[in-house]
Amino acid sequence: MRRPRLWTLREDRSGSGPITEAECTTCLEGSGAADGGRGPAVWCLAHAQATGHTGFRRIRTDFFRASCGSP
């Protein structure tokens, strides 16, 4: 009897790494995606100064890759 192959899920390190975005929880404007967290953080501070909005949602996206190995 043939055994099924085992699949594993690993962090995908072939790309840029995690992507970070920020979104205002008042008006839903966003910073846009960035490879690092500094750009969205600076956007939050500028947005707060310009609008008085103080709540933000940080969105971090990272990636996985599935691979199939031997049983």
Rank of each mutant, 00 (worst) to 15 (best):
Q49S: 09
A50K: 11
T54Q: 11
T51F: 10
L9P: 03
W7G: 13
D35R: 08
G37Q: 13
R10D: 04
T26C: 11
P40L: 07
A34C: 06
H47S: 04
G52H: 02
C24P: 05
P4N: 05
G37C: 08
M1D: 09
E21D: 06
A48P: 00
S14G: 07
G36C: 06
R13I: 09
W7C: 05
A41G: 11
S67L: 09
A22N: 04
L28M: 15
S70A: 07
S14C: 09
S70M: 02
A48V: 01
S70Y: 08
T8D: 03
S70Q: 12
E21L: 14
F64E: 08
G52V: 01
T20P: 00
E21C: 09
C27D: 08
T26M: 14
I19C: 04
L45N: 08
A46I: 01
R2F: 07
I59Q: 03
R57T: 06
E23W: 09
A48D: 06
L6F: 12
M1T: 05
G30N: 13
R13W: 15
R65M: 13
G52C: 04
F63D: 01
C44F: 03
D12I: 14
G15A: 07
T26H: 15
R5K: 07
E21F: 04
Q49G: 11
W43D: 01
E29I: 03
W43P: 02
D12W: 03
G30A: 05
D12L: 03
S67D: 11
E29V: 03
A66K: 06
R13Q: 06
I19L: 13
D35L: 08
S31V: 00
E23F: 07
C24W: 08
R65I: 12
E11H: 10
A50W: 00
T25F: 05
C44G: 02
R65A: 07
A46E: 12
R57Q: 14
L6I: 15
W7V: 13
A34H: 12
